[in-house]
Design a protein around this nucleic acid. Sequence first.
DNA 1: ATACACGCCTGCTGGC
DNA 2: TGCCAGCAGGCGTGTA
Length: 338
Amino acid sequence: MPELPEVEVVRAGLAPAVTGARVAGVEVLDARSLKRHEAASGGFEALLTGERIEAAVRRGKFLWMPLAGGTALVGHLGMSGQLLLRTPDHPGDDRHARIRLHLEHPVHGELRVDFVDQRIFGSMAIDRMVPTADGEVAGFSADVTGPWARSIPSQVAHIARDPLDPAFDDAAFAAALARRATGVKRVLLDQGVASGIGNIYADEALWAVRMHGEQPGSSLGRRRVRDLLAAVREVLQKALAEGGTSFDAQYVNVNGASGYFAHSLNAYGRAGRPCPRCGTPIVREAFMNRSSHRCPRCQRLRASVRRVAAHDASARVVRVTPAATSPGSSAGGTPAPG
DNA sequence: ATACACGCCTGCTGGC
DNA sequence: TGCCAGCAGGCGTGTA
């Protein structure tokens, strides 16, 4: 979890407080949270202390704060990470506080940013910046005029733009789907194809577009790809508008408050409960060491026939047989005609 | 190149 | 009561 909407809520909350602030002090309470920090470049505390934060930027689930010296403070929340904005005198009794930043802001005065992470899948690091591959603005932030705007931390460079990014390449997304024989859900979760989507929003978008997660990417026609992308964007935007999805105190904004999107979920986490569209109980299925949730009636594997190459006179076709990709489950459904 | 298993982590829950 | 398996799962790495 935190996926794009949750990370964006954190970024938006952080931005006004940290932009223009000077890092007065750094406390590393648990060095395991620095696993993505390349020690060879220098000590995390030394590289960060004294720097001025220029902005708070996000691409997909990655956050970074460009520093005046030309590097960036990169953060990833992983599964359970939080960035909490606090007053300097806030009690330091957080059981899972891993890193603490003491900031001095020209307007807001002294404040503290606590990186709290129960499971330590998240991390912070100081990283060098590299130019973006396409020369466009690297990620989402209020200000895109700084010299850092078209640069991205080296460890984030391989992450694709997210579907809400104005520079997201719809055609490249379609092309990536077209060359993947694997299930469309796996492609959605591939941060190198489109970023910001995790298990929750993948399931929600697939439900919205009535698509089975194991539907081969290469079996989708142009229209289905377009509809899928539209569904992904709609789900992400709606979640964003509701402050993200929270199931417990784990996923919160910079003030520790939870979002409301959990009330809007249609498939994720609703195993056994009726599909809001047709009433059929939602099923939960094992998927890549985790779970997928779908409506067995609305979201069936479809046999599909698709031209592999329009210019190919032999008009070779690919036939997708649901039975071959849905072992041991009658819930895979009957292929729709056509 | 694509596909997928695995390790990293902690805390909670359910079964025995 | 205690113990342990299972689950939550994003991302980098390694292997085929």
